[in-house]
Each structure stands twice: as structure tokens, then as C-alpha cells.
Design a protein around this nucleic acid. Structure first.
Length: 375
RNA sequence: GGUGGGGUGACCGAGUGGCUAAUGGUAGCAGACUGUAAAUCUGCCGGGCUAACGCCCUACGUAGGUUCGAAUCCUACCCCCACCA
């Protein structure tokens, strides 16, 4: 349980297999985000058919609706959603960042004013862990304090140090909840903003509190430039444990996956695949495509001729554009399916190339082609 | 035939003397989106020139008129709607 086997590597890039109570995850892998216990617009079968191996849920949002007690009474997230594969829940730490105007931070925890009904909800490290335990995913995330990339070194330091202190509390509470044959593990999150020394301190402090079955890097893709994100990843990579998966939270766009994989990242999650899909942007091997664009009106071509997803093997571009024009929900679903499949497949291809020792050349060629098309 | 109301940019629809190339909305076009407050948000949307400030042209049914100035006032005509005969 919670074992990670590295099966091949090329430079810093790794291919491996993560064993979780609900199944295995072959890495590198993209994890679709299902904040509200649903990958927006998609059925569990839709997600399964994209080849996704593990999906996310969110502590804060599921606490508000339907409430962790409901999910628990329904048999946990897997039974509730009918998704029988591995799951991971984010702790609500990202909402400290994204709902900045609706929350107040103290050492004890974070007081949120619910964006649903205005009620005050307090999330502490202990509560975040308890809720995730009730939700019942394979992997729970530590409750962290995410700060914007533009934060001052002082603010970034404060968030980083608080995240470490909260990590102690998360770990202690989680240990009380889980038994010796625990069906759930807890992963810590490295913070420190864009400041090298803070990142290193966060990493060292985190590892000192281990051992862990996985380590996450948070607080990136929150406003910094790509070179900065790459620099932080390169800084952390040599010091990260080899024998556990590294999870880069909230990333990313297709190119970000390859850039991350090249820097030793094994797991990714991001809402962009589904959000962009709903908003009419499809990812293709040579860049992005505006599916609502007038140029597609008469196109009988598939969205991505190289893709094997339901959307690309079934519908012509002209029809997909039409579905957006008439605002049918099928449009949102179909492009979301493609974008997820695109990222999942990118992980699969990267894995094959890592195992074959051809990752570098393939990755370079892929990025050149993709960046040329925008993104 | 009579009376009343009305004809505004692709469409709907404000505007009753200068701040009007003309409010809004729809349709259309483009852009943004990274651990989801997002099926959302932003910009453009008569034509031409300009990198831009800006300049020119054409426009509120048609044709005239009043006025320094008209989508707005006057006259005639055309068309639409309602009611009455």
C-alpha cells in the first residue's frame, strides 16, 4: 500500500507506478480535477475512458456541499461518485489563495465566509484532515498556506513557516485517525513562493517531518513566470526523495507537463483541461484551437486527428463549433473529454519515452511544435 | 376612404435641436483562463486611412425645407400597424 516503484528514468524524468488502495497509477500522470466530486460535466465513465487513473476532490467545497458527513454516510467518495479508482483530496489550502477576499488567516486556521450562503466556516489543519478522512480518498493533502507569487519575501516566509507548523498538526491528527493498515495516506506540501532559500527551508523542514509516501510542490502557477517556476523545480529536484512520487499541484497546460516531467515531477493536476474545454479552447499537438472560431464552420476534420478520444474519433470540428454556437452542454463535455485525454495521453507518451530512453529528443521536438502554436 | 400610432445601424430597441457614428440587448468576431466562487470574464463590433493621438466619408423610410447646427422641427410622398367606415 502507498508504494512507489521507479521503473525508468532519463535525466531527472522518471517513470514509475504508484500503488494505492483503489488501484495503481502509472506515472508521469495527469489527474483530472473533480472539485465537487465530479469532473465538471463528465460521468465517471467519461473520465475512465480518457484513461485518467486518479481524480481529485476538494475539502473546502465538499465540506460546504454536500458536507463530509453526507459523503461518509453515502459510503465515501468512491461509492458516492461511482468512480472506483484512486482518488486524492486537496485540503482547502488553495482556497486560502483563491478565496482571498472571503477568508481570514490566523495561526489556528482559516475562517472562510462561505461563498454559497455567507456562513462562517473554519478550517484548521486538524479539521482539514478530519474532513478528508471522512471523505475517504486514498491520498489526503496537508492543509497549507498558499501565497501569491507577487508576495513579499516576508509574506512568503510567513506562509511557508505556517505551512510547516500546520503540517505537524495535520500529521498528528491524521495519525490519530488512521489505523496501522490505513486506507489513506497524507502528503505534505512544499511552499516558499519564488524564493530559493525559502523553498529549500520548506523542503528540508518537510522532509524532516517525514517519512512521507509522496511529496507535493505547491504555490506555483500562481502568477510567476514559467522560467521562475522551472527554476524552483530545478532547485528542489536534487533534494527530493527518489522513492516517492512528486506532485506538482495545480499544473498545468500541456507544455507545463513536459517541462515538469523533465524536472522530475510525477503527478500533476489542473483545472485548465476542463475549464478551457468548457470555454472553447482545445489543446492540439501544435498549440491551441479556438473551437468557437468561424474558420471551423465548415470543417469536417476531427478536432485532433492524432487523438483517440471519443470526441476526436466521432465528431467533426464544424459540429463541435455548432454545439458551442447553440450553447449545448454537449460542447462543454466533448472538449473537456478531449483536453483531459490530451494530457493523459501526454503522460502516457512521456512515460513510454522515458522507459525507452527517448524522452529528451521527443520532448524537445514536442515542445518546439507546441509552443510554435501558442501556449 | 377616415382617424391615430409608427418607420433608427445584421436584428430588437433607446434617443425628440448641438455633449450622437448614435444608450441597451441580441447575433457576430477575438482574447483570457494553471491544487475550479468560472457553461465564466474581457475587448471589438458602419466604411476608409493611421503604429497611435486622430482625420475623412457615409448613415436614423424617400425628397425637399427651417436653422450657425437636424435622427430630433416643417412640407410632400412611400411603406407598416391599430381602430372606424
Amino acid at each position: 500500500m502507498f508504494e512507489y516503484r521507479v521503473e525508468g528514468r532519463t535525466g531527472s524524468a522518471r517513470a514509475g507506478t504508484l500503488s494505492l488502495p483503489h488501484g495503481e497509477v502509472r506515472t508521469p500522470a495527469f489527474m483530472p480535477v473533480g472539485t465537487h466530486a465530479v469532473v465538471r460535466g463528465l460521468s465517471a465513465g467519461d473520465v475512465r475512458r480518457t484513461g485518467a487513473q486518479i481524480i481529485l476532490g476538494n475539502t473546502y467545497h465538499l465540506h460546504l456541499r454536500p458536507g463530509e458527513a453526507v459523503v461518509e454516510a453515502m459510503g465515501g467518495l468512491n461509492r458516492f461518485t461511482t468512480w472506483d479508482g484512486p482518488m486524492l483530496t486537496d485540503s482547502g489550502g488553495f482556497q486560502v489563495f483563491s478565496l482571498e477576499g472571503l477568508r481570514r488567516i490566523s495561526e489556528e486556521g482559516v475562517e472562510f465566509q462561505s461563498h454559497i450562503d455567507g456562513t462562517l466556516r473554519t478550517l484548521t489543519p486538524e479539521r482539514a484532515v478530519e474532513i478528508q478522512w471522512q471523505l475517504g480518498a486514498d491520498v489526503a493533502m496537508a492543509f497549507d498556506h498558499v501565497v501569491p507569487a507577487q508576495s513579499s519575501p516576508q509574506a512568503a516566509c510567513e506562509g511557508m513557516e505556517r505551512t510547516l507548523r500546520w503540517l505537524d498538526r495535520c500529521k498528528a491528527r491524521h495519525a490519530e485517525l488512521v489505523g496501522p493498515t490505513s486506507p489513506q495516506t497524507l502528503w505534505p506540501i512544499i511552499q516558499g513562493g519564488i524564493h530559493d532559500e525559502l523553498r529549500i527551508r520548506s523542503l528540508e523542514g518537510t522532509l524532516a517531518r517525514g517519512p512521507w509516501t509522496g511529496v507535493a510542490i505547491g504555490g506555483l502557477s500562481v502568477g510567476e513566470t514559467k522560467p521562475v517556476m522551472h527554476r524552483v523545480l530545478e532547485l528542489l529536484e536534487p533534494a527530493l526523495p527518489r522513492d516517492v512520487p512528486r506532485y506538482l499541484m495545480g499544473v498545468g497546460f500541456p507544455a507545463d507537463l513536459l517541462e515538469g516531467i523533465a524536472r522530475g515531477i510525477d503527478l500533476f493536476d489542473c483545472v485548465a483541461a476542463t475549464r478551457n474545454g468548457r470555454h472553447g479552447t482545445a489543446w492540439l499537438p501544435n498549440g491551441r484551437l479556438n473551437v468557437k472560431g468561424a474558420t471551423l464552420k465548415h470543417s469536417t476534420a476531427p478536432l485532433d486527428p492524432t487523438c483517440d478520444c471519443e470526441t476526436c474519433t466521432t465528431y467533426p470540428r464544424g459540429y463541435l463549433r455548432h454545439l458551442f454556437m447553440v450553447e449545448d452542454i454537449l460542447a462543454l463535455r466533448l472538449v473537456s473529454i478531449h483536453n483531459i485525454r490530451f494530457l493523459v495521453r501526454l503522460g502516457e507518451q512521456a512515460r513510454d519515452h522515458i522507459l525507452n530512453g527517448t524522452f529528451d529528443g521527443w520532448s524537445r521536438e514536442w515542445l518546439g511544435r507546441h509552443y510554435a502554436g501558442g501556449d
